[in-house]
Design a protein around this nucleic acid. Structure first.
Length: 477
RNA sequence: GGUCUCAUCGUCUAACGGUUAGGACACCAGGUUUUCAUCCUGGCAAUCGGAGUUCGAUUCUCCGUGAGAUCACCA
């Protein structure tokens, strides 16, 4: 079995969105599969200096690390095939380009871009496909590095096996004389990724579906370079939720780091992305990172595109929050608490966290769901009005109930068990239904639309606070 | 237009050619002696169409249809 060397090779043109991150994740999972000793490489493809966005590299690294993806070789780590920044490898590409020139498989492009554009337009007008090779010059000039260098292709049909898509094939029209080195001296992706993958000993190339059409060109170049192509694996698109387009920045694809700010857990995101186009064949839905590492395989990756369904991500996030230990959850929750909560201290926050843990969908829910534990709520009569049963009682019905509750609760112990007994006793002495009595007490101490179980809530609030709030609420009537 | 890919509930998906086509999200209805966004139970809901191969097609073949991609001195 071959030892996997896989890579993720983004260009530094901005933030990372879910589509790109998923490709990285799958590549990483493949290399780090349990029981294998593969290597995962991060290579930065910065050969388009026009589209480069400053700070992208750091952002890419942060995005991968946020998800838990760590690489073995990269620009910050070095490695046997350093440098890992393509703009620092220009002499290598020049050597390989020279090899192609020497073997007659590359030539200087004598045309201006306007002339090429005119050829293209002509083909379009005549409704036939444009192929540069139809205009291949008979006596190309010697390449001086200022003209584009083109690949002299050898058009023919190709059949190949894709690890995800299966058998693929194309006719000779898919192959043309593409540019290897641009007029500015930088190589194109089409050329340098093949050179780098060969030098770096990459065994598996995972990429998104848009590259399927250019794969025959790559195969033709591999032939010309006498290099054996790596295993190719084409991942289906991640589509925008309307299902019409592949997800892209222009269609509102968010920066992956945004999800962290919005209270999503990286392991939930990893679970979500992994199961967007992959499943293990069982009915398991929740996967930890370790389980993904153990179970992931390319042959169970879906061929058809999948939509990005945030509802499912939200559900998964809630599931993963529940999987966290209290200590772990606390550490991750730190940037989400309100100021009052932070002042209340770690012990208090953990106590509250324990109570609301099962109700959280995202960490960003924490402030709205825990406010009343850390600050005095304002009595809000409209919340009573929102409850049909309570409204029916009227103020004159509510007042004695609250007063009785205050007496009983001021005499109770404040463990959840004791409080439950007290509350049950209260049901008997007042002769009220729990739906009325408990709703009323809950509102009077929290004035929140929802809260955990009443006895637990009271226990965490403590006697003094409970009695105070009951009094405030009574007076507000 | 050329080239290529894909096609099961609304969504993500399962089903060595033989299943009442399964699960999950979402939604709806009940339940858990308070609320509820947790939890439990139940419900709704799908094989794009047409031929062919076969005793038998979601599954194999072909033809349609639909969707998407690509055809850059971008990656």
């Amino acid at each position: 079995m071959t030892i996997v060397r896989s890579r993720f090779a983004p260009s530094p043109t901005g933030y990372m969105h879910v589509g790109g991150v998923r490709t990285a994740l799958f590549s990483w999972l493949l290399a780090r599969q349990a029981g294998t000793d593969g290597t995962f490489i991060l290579r930065i493809e910065d050969t388009d200096k026009v589209r480069e966005v400053e700070g992208s590299i750091v952002q890419i690294e942060n995005s991968l690390r946020w998800l838990g993806i760590e690489w073995d070789e990269g620009i910050d780590k070095g490695g046997p095939d350093a440098p890992y920044l393509q703009s620092e490898r220009l002499t290598i590409y020049k050597e390989w380009a020279q090899k192609l020139i020497d073997s007659g498989r590359a030539y200087a492009d004598p045309y201006t871009s306007e002339e090429v554009e005119a050829f293209r337009q002509l083909a379009k007008d005549e409704k036939r496909p444009f192929l540069y090779r139809d205009h291949r010059p008979e006596n190309p000039p010697v390449w001086d590095g200022t003209q584009p260098l083109r690949f002299k292709s050898d058009p023919k049909p190709y059949k190949w096996t894709d690890a995800v898509m299966g058998e693929l094939s194309t006719g000779p029209d898919a192959i043309d004389d593409f540019i290897l080195v641009k007029g500015d001296g930088y190589p194109t992706y089409n050329f340098c990724h093949i050179v780098d993958d060969a030098i770096m000993g990459i065994t598996h190339v995972l990429r998104s579906q848009e590259f399927i059409a250019s794969t025959p060109k790559f195969l033709n170049l591999y032939d010309a370079l006498e290099v054996t192509p790596p295993t190719l694996a084409t991942l289906p698109y991640v589509m925008a939720i309307d299902g019409k387009k592949k997800l892209g920045k222009r269609d509102g694809a968010k920066d992956i780091l945004e999800y962290g700010n919005e209270g999503y857990l990286p392991e939930a995101m990893a679970n979500f992305l992994a199961t967007l186009g992959w499943n293990d064949g069982t009915e398991q839905e929740i996967f930890t990172i370790d389980e993904l590492l153990e179970k992931f395989s390319l042959d169970r990756v879906q061929k058809s595109p999948a939509r990005f369904d945030e509802q499912r991500l939200l559900w998964l996030n809630g599931q993963h929050i529940r999987l966290l230990s209290l200590d772990d959850l606390y550490i991750r929750s730190l940037s989400f608490w309100s100021k009052n909560a932070l002042e209340a201290g770690e012990a208090r926050q953990k106590q509250v966290l324990e109570l609301v843990k099962d109700r959280l969908k995202t960490l960003a829910d924490i402030p709205t769901i825990t406010d009343y534990f850390f600050e005095e709520p304002t009595p809000n009569w409209s919340m009573i009005e929102g409850n049909k049963q309570l409204v029916a009682l009227g103020k004159e019905g509510i007042l004695p109930l609250l007063q009785q509750a205050k007496v009983a609760l001021s005499e109770s112990d404040y463990t959840p068990e004791a409080l439950q007994e007290t509350l049950n006793g209260l049901l008997e002495t007042t002769g009220q239904k729990p739906g009325i009595l408990f709703s009323l007490i809950r509102l009077a101490v929290s004035w929140a639309p929802f809260s955990p179980a009443l006895n637990d809530t009271l226990a965490v609030l403590g006697k003094e606070t409970v009695i105070n709030r009951l009094e405030v609420s009574i007076n507000a009537l």
